[in-house]
């Protein structure tokens, strides 16, 4: 049993990744469990931000500084590459959010609701009416 000891150093160098997993799963939970479409979009945004934080934390160097060159020799800079990728991802993220919200607005105009359950019930009702009228015209 002596091998299983609480490795404080390991926790200190990995807790960061676990924090973002917790945040990501909170976002996933909101997206999966709530029926309201606006809330689903907010959940997706939380999920997305957690991924961004994970990427940026991989580029961090403890004791380093932001990758803006000071010209002083011996300065340690964090990795600029994840920052660039995430800058692009944030802007693409807002574009997809805008598209999702536009779809929500159109869904509300057509179905008069933005609750997933009610939309499914309405679609089922529409299917039955369509089938019934098709059967009626065949006769």
């Amino acid at each position: 049993m002596e091998e299983i000891v609480f490795d404080f150093g390991f926790v200190l160098t990995h807790y960061n990744y676990w924090m973002f997993v917790v945040l990501m799963m909170t976002g996933l939970y909101i997206t999966v469990s709530r029926g309201n479409l606006v809330k689903k979009v907010v959940g997706l945004n939380i999920f997305q931000t957690a991924v961004f934080l994970l990427y940026v934390s991989m580029g961090k160097i403890v004791g380093g500084t932001a990758p803006i060159l000071t010209g002083e020799p011996g300065t340690v800079y964090s990795n600029p590459l994840p920052h660039v990728l995430i800058l692009t991802a944030i802007v693409v993220g807002i574009a997809t959010t805008a598209l999702a919200l536009a779809l929500v607005v159109r869904i509300r105009e057509t179905y008069d609701t933005i609750e997933e359950d009610e939309i499914i019930a309405l679609e089922l009702a529409m299917d039955t009416t369509a089938k019934a009228s098709a059967a009626g015209s065949e006769r």
């Binding site: 931000t49 940026v56 803006i68």
Partner: peptide
């Protein structure tokens, strides 16, 4: 704010403005 502690200034102010 968390991005600032991770040295990502550009990401931080994009997130603050866009997010």
């Amino acid at each position: 704010a968390l991005f600032v502690t991770l040295d990502a200034m550009d990401v931080a102010f994009t997130e603050a403005a866009v997010g």
